[in-house]
Amino acid sequence: MYSHNGDTFFVVDGHLHFWDASPANWVSGQEQYAKGWIECFHAYMGLGPEETHWPLEKFQKYSEDDFVKDVFEDGYVDVGIFQSTYLKEWYRDGFNTLEKNSQLVEKYPDRLIANGRWDPREGEAGLKQLEEDAKRYNLQGVKLYTAEWYQGSRGWSLKEPESQRFLEKCQALGIKNIHVHKGPTIWPLDKDAFDVSDVDYVATNFPELNFIVEHVGLPRIEDFCFMATQEPNVYAGLAVVIGGLMHARPRFFAKVMGELLFWVGEDKMLWASDYAIWEPRWQVEGFVDWTSPEDVEFSDYPRLTTDGKKKILGLNAAKLYGIDVPDEFQIPDEAGEPAAREDAQLVDSA
């Protein structure tokens, strides 16, 4: 919960990690990749305010106490959602697995939600595992990593027939929030891993599922926006947008927010800190304080009001995850439509 100038915000952090990327967890022979991955993340931390930077050693493996302090005590987060990321090809016990994240969920059951994962390349065994995970952890969502390595394969697409079976299984199991990583990545070598056309395809075929595109397809935000405009069940996950741009590149941040507000709309944008890449505190405080610059360059972007910020910081995610929000944080319900919906049919000619 965050209070500022008489306004109160219910804060849901849509993208959290509790990872172990310390050398003890590196897979023998794959050290360069395990090391490269976490050092790349660490460089991204450098885009936040200097006083929030951590030394690499702490960044590789932080404690439960760090997590609780940074997220709950200092970070204003009421409910956090773990996006489990396995990467077992490089990290022996995984980077941050559902099992590990769930240990924290058990301790803070009202404050944390852990999402699972699946990979269509695991076939029947994967479907069985998903079913077990769903029952054991009461899954409401999954995080999918289409660029992940698996036994020599350099990635996969949601369009593949096998993916349809997993999505059908999700629907049957009541897993309705499908988070898809479309953002900065290292692999695969031979695919454009930012290509969001596969999300477009499944969003149409599975209208009852919600597809949250993590990192809004950066650095291909235009492809994401054109797609999201046409798909009512596609959401923008703002991890990296706020953490990576708001402090380091404020004018670009304002442009990206303006474009997202125009094409996607404030009802379909979800804030996320991407902790531990960035701490939540400065992001929440900065975002609540943020206003778009006044110059003419920004004049025809939709304006973001305090109510809009309340939605983005927590109310939108609370709806997707059925989180009870006390009345004092609610805003009067109103039908919000993205400004560009009527332009959707013209997008294909871009």
């Binding site: 650095p219 235009e222 054109f226 670009f252 990206v256 094409w263 871009a350």
Partner: peptide
């Protein structure tokens, strides 16, 4: 938007 994306 394409321009913004490239510049960002």
């Amino acid at each position: 938007l394409v321009r913004t994306s490239l510049e960002v």
